[in-house]
């Protein structure tokens, strides 16, 4: 289908971005990589009167790492750049491994991490691992800026907590915690290069043989990427025996809210949540990094 007509702005500074958006935020789409935006404009799933491209805004593509303050991924940083970033590989391997499974080489060289989050798809593969790492998003408006935890930022399919006149300038990941073990597992029943049927990111610390700071996050099994709070609670503070892990996995299965689509049925996705959660937690306990 053909791309509908719209005005196109290519600002060079944030001030120009906000000037372009003006009071037409609800009629505006922000363009970073465009791999989700352009197909959805073509198909009519998204509509707008104007597109504001962020690619020309100086500094938005930065990836900064500081051991004291953590990682900052700019709005225009490509998935491939984040995946290959030495600091990401060393300190946040779960993020690099999740990006490795996302789409294809070509798409990863076009699409951005922030775009993946702002597209607010339930199967955004960067969301569960970034949530497991405790990431926050930096939201900039014409007059001020603030931060929100990523967990809660995505409020529904294609909906986020961002106001129409604001933009996400970066995603912030806390400083690396050497004791925090993290893992990301993704499953598609159809191909090794595919959109997830189910994905699981998990994180925990082992302190004196007990699981602490347990986080379990699920992709594709709810209207948004979700925190499996009850499943995490089933493990928190306990010795992660196989019985306890099984209970946490079954809890995750009960907690998720998948729907049947032609990629997989609701029941199969629930089953996969249990299998993948169990595998993820076992991997963490048995020596995951």
């Amino acid at each position: 289908m053909r791309l509908p007509a719209f005005d196109y702005h290519a600002p060079a500074t944030l001030d120009e971005v906000f000037a372009a958006i003006g009071d037409r935020g609800r009629d505006t789409q922000l363009l970073a990589g465009g791999t989700d935006l352009l197909p959805s404009l073509r198909s009519g799933k998204r509509r707008c009167r104007q597109v504001v491209a962020l690619k020309g805004v100086a500094g938005l593509d930065a990836i900064r790492f500081d051991p004291e303050t953590g990682l900052e991924i700019g709005a225009c940083a490509l998935l491939a750049e984040v995946q290959d970033n030495p600091a990401v590989r060393e300190h946040y391997p779960v993020l690099a491994s999740a990006i490795r499974t996302l789409a294809t080489v070509q798409v990863r060289h076009k699409a951005t991490v922030v775009g993946n989050l702002c597209n607010a798809s339930p199967c955004a593969d960067t969301a569960p691992p970034l949530m497991a790492l405790g990431a926050r998003v930096r939201i900039v408006g014409p007059d001020d800026q603030h931060e929100l935890p990523l967990d809660g930022f995505i409020t529904g399919p294609r909906r986020t907590a961002r106001e129409p006149e604001e933009l996400i300038s970066s995603v912030l990941v806390p400083p690396p915690d050497p004791a925090l073990r993290t893992v990301f597992l993704k499953f598609s029943p159809r191909s090794k290069v595919d959109i997830s049927a189910v994905s699981v990111a998990a994180a925990l610390r082992l302190e004196d043989g007990l699981a602490r700071a347990v986080g379990i996050f699920l992709g594709t099994v709810a209207p948004t990427p979700m925190r499996a709070a009850s499943a995490a609670a089933a493990l928190e503070g306990l010795e992660p025996t196989s019985e306890v892990i099984d209970l946490a996995a079954r809890t995750a299965r009960g907690e998720c809210q998948p729907v049947t689509d032609f990629r997989a049925s609701k029941e199969y996705k629930q089953h996969l949540v249990e299998v993948l959660t169990r595998r993820a937690l076992r991997a963490l306990v048995e020596g995951g990094a």
Binding site: R190, S191, K192, V193, D194, F262, R263
Partner: peptide, 15 residues
């Protein structure tokens, strides 16, 4: 229902 190559699953090199 699945008239795109996103949802019509051709095996790729990795498969």
């Amino acid at each position: 229902l699945n008239a795109t190559l996103l949802d019509y699953k051709l095996p790729v090199a990795e498969d």
